[in-house]
Design a protein around this nucleic acid. Structure first.
Lengths: 83, 83
DNA sequence: AATGATTATACGATATAGCGTATAATGCAG
DNA sequence: CTGCATTATACGCTATATCGTATAATCATT
């Protein structure tokens, strides 16, 4: 279960998954991060222009972190974006 | 050597390290990503407001990727930000 | 179907990325 | 120390995040 995130959409999807796993709604996550529910919504939907600082804040609130590593080949089963 | 990146500054530092390892200057990396040298500079210096889409583009150009995972305790030796 | 909870979207306002272009500051080899 | 390469910074411009506030759309449960 390595959660590769190569695009804002993948990052948003992982944030949403984790938020739900923690039983939070967007308003609650927003409260933890001083962001509006509307902002959490756009992040989870993969807005390309979200600020990296904002993403980092949200990850921290969810006890997540980024790791940066050389790209690896993706197993087909890890792909979500194949039409 | 797990490259944890919890802040824009850490992300920028890792991008710089990788760029240099690939023997590219900021202008060359900019060319690969359709970004200006000045933009690469601000990214590497940890600008909080850089767009996540822009970061993803730069990582791709450097053959890097994000992994998102639950936060782990950081070994003291991995810390760069301790004054 | 109805209701309450959750998420998506709207509008005007403010702040700022990234652009093009240019220059200043710094780094480095000889 | 000198000169070239590299990186940092500046200015005006356009696009857009995020804000506050509010509402519309969707989901889930009964």
């Amino acid at each position: 279960m390595t959660d590769i995130a190569r695009s804002p959409k993948q990052i948003g999807a992982l944030i949403r998954k984790r938020r739900r796993a923690k039983d939070l709604n967007q308003t609650e996550l927003g409260a933890k991060t001083s962001l509006r529910q509307a902002t959490i919504s756009t992040i989870e939907n993969g807005e390309e222009a979200t600020r990296i600082g904002t993403i980092c804040d949200v990850l921290a609130a969810l006890d997540l972190e980024f790791v940066i590593r050389p790209r690896r080949t993706v197993k087909p089963s890890d792909l979500e974006d194949v039409f």
